[in-house]
Design a binder for these strands. Structure first.
Lengths: 256, 256
DNA sequence: CGATGTGAACCTATTCACAGCG
DNA sequence: CGCTGTGAATAGGTTCACATCG
């Protein structure tokens, strides 16, 4: 991303540490901590130890403590963290205190599902517009929102600034949509289309690709299978089979 | 994940480097390279330079070369990579030469979308079963597949081994579903529910959480806003449209 | 000559281990 | 005494720069 290093920029504020530019890895985990905290709160606890919270968030406690320390955290030694306080802290840092407007482009299969996703509203976001390029879809009502044509985007953005654009179109349309989002001032994009978007500097793009996740899992499956084929334990039985492609057979053109 | 370190395991093979246990970061990028390669192939090229492929995949060329070198890559100095060969290589490493069976649990909003997702089939996966706990949904037909009850899972898994389980249920049900998947031998899970799953060692879980992605973007929005508020450039009025969406990405050009 | 493949330098992230505080 | 917060050690990843080979 940006390699801007506004070295002396922060750390100046008197009372509030403002925005202490966190490590990316930490940022990526804060939402998880937030979820875990809500869970803890609902269970009735009003403090948690780093151990407890770490478990709920699926990380180890050292990592959690270091992450929280980055935001000048509010824990009490010998006790733990004040749940409510920490929730506020993290929500503030993540910028969730203002309800951000999201424009969702592409109301196909996936777009439909996203439009109906309850987690949007419950976690600080508001779908401000559903858009599609297909005239047949325009006018359709989903979850109380009417689908509008992508050409209306400038007008919509003028009425209310869009904080985040979500692209759920086919790959072929995605770059075009991204350009239009950028044109109306959107600087954060969540892209579900399986393609690389090119955007000007200063615009953030995150990508979610289901197929990629599956392929990563597939790799590990493949790996596990090949390790099972030739284990450290010289198992009573199949000791043959040199390596992994065992079950598969030499089909496919890898060789040639 | 697994911290298994089968130190001396690989590196023995005479001809085929078999499974050279790649760095996680590399594994996560291979699917992206694969997509880029298909794109290049469709454009009619049969070789690519690291530069060209890197651009198509959205990374820099040094990273790409190092990644490919890990799988004992097949490039030609002064020329580039043989597209078809590299596709085969990566598909083999990712274990995509066998069509893996996927069981999708939870046919709600999101599950529906996933069931209809074309990228499944086109990239080496096959939905072997749609499952849900809700009797009302059982029997429904989606995309040519009939939704069956989750209780049928053992039977289904017996008919055909499930390589990957996809959980698209509400968070409250997810752990239970995961347990059932594990019980029938599934060792790879893709979890869309916003919660931490606890699984035995040897089972891989990957998580996709839309809300987390949005929150990460929100952080950066928040950050950008606060930097704009007290910038080096004191200009309160936006000077003059810094970036032009000018022509956007001239590359991409699959079409021409 | 041009592009790959790779050692080395650099940077980021995780883990350890314990000082320090409540 | 228990738990947080953090320096130090380690591991992992990225980038640079160039030797090497087709």
């Amino acid at each position: 991303m940006s390699q801007h290093r506004p070295t002396g920029a922060s750390g100046r504020a008197g009372v509030v540490p403002a925005l202490p530019d966190l490590p990316e890895a930490t940022v990526a985990r804060l939402p998880e901590y937030l979820r875990a905290l809500h869970q803890v709160a609902e269970a009735g606890n009003d403090t948690v130890s780093s151990e407890g919270l770490a478990t709920a968030a699926g990380v180890n406690s050292a990592k959690l403590r270091k992450d929280l320390s980055h935001l000048g955290s509010y824990g009490t030694r010998g006790v733990g963290y004040d749940v409510a306080l920490l929730i506020d802290q993290i929500e503030f840092v993540l910028g969730l205190t203002q309800r951000r407007a999201v424009a969702l482009v592409g109301v196909g299969n996936l777009g439909h599902a996203l439009a109906g996703y309850a987690g949007f509203a419950s976690r600080g976001f508001r779908i401000a517009a559903l858009l599609d390029a297909d005239p047949e879809r325009v006018g359709e009502q989903i979850n109380g929102l009417v689908v509008r044509h992508i050409a209306d985007l400038p007008q919509i953005a003028a009425e209310e600034p869009i904080a985040i654009g979500v692209i759920a179109t086919p790959a072929a349309a995605a770059q075009n949509v991204a350009d239009q989002l950028v044109a109306v001032g959107v600087t954060s994009i969540l892209n579900f289309a399986p393609c690389v978007l090119s955007v000007p500097e200063g615009v953030d793009v995150r990508k979610v690709d289901l197929a990629i996740e599956l392929q990563i899992l597939s790799f590990h499956e493949h790996r596990k299978a090949s390790l099972t084929a030739l284990p450290t334990t010289p198992g009573p039985g199949l000791t043959s089979m040199p390596f992994g492609l065992a079950g598969a057979g030499p089909q496919e053109a890898v060789g040639s």
